[in-house]
Each structure stands twice: as structure tokens, then as C-alpha cells.
Amino acid sequence: MRIRLNGKDVSLPDGMTLRDLVRHYDLDGEPVAIERNGQIVDRQAFEAEVIQEGDVIEMVRFVGGG
């Protein structure tokens, strides 16, 4: 399936959950936050949220800043 992730078109295996997406980018253990189609998804819900074709997802993390 194709989705829009962080402003880019990305192809992912069908049936992936948000938890899988986090793992896919080696971010296990990292406190990432995800917004799916404009709605923030609670971290506890990552496991249950299955990504759908055409989803628009923002996945963010903390970086250095002032």
C-alpha cells in the first residue's frame, strides 16, 4: 500500500500497524508521536491501529533545539 509519511510517498506492506511502522524505522523504545489523518494517536493505540492505503501520517521525535 502507498501512504503519505512525513510529506513523502512511501510504500509499505499491507496490514502494518503503527507499532510496526515504528519498528520498521528502528524506533523501538523511542518516544515518537504519530498523527494519522490529522488526529494524534495515543501511544497505547499504536498496536491496534492498522495503516490504510492513502493514510497521511506524521511521525515525529525529539531532536536538539533551543
Binding site: 512511501v10 524505522y25 525529539f62 531532536v63 533545539g65
Partner: peptide, 12 residues
């Protein structure tokens, strides 16, 4: 303080 930014998809 820290900033919030999109995860870089091209590099770990």
C-alpha cells in the same frame, strides 16, 4: 529544551 521534528525516513 528540545525540538519536535519529523523522523528522517532516509537515515537512522
Amino acid at each position: 529544551t528540545v525540538a519536535v521534528r519529523r523522523v528522517n525516513l532516509d537515515a537512522r
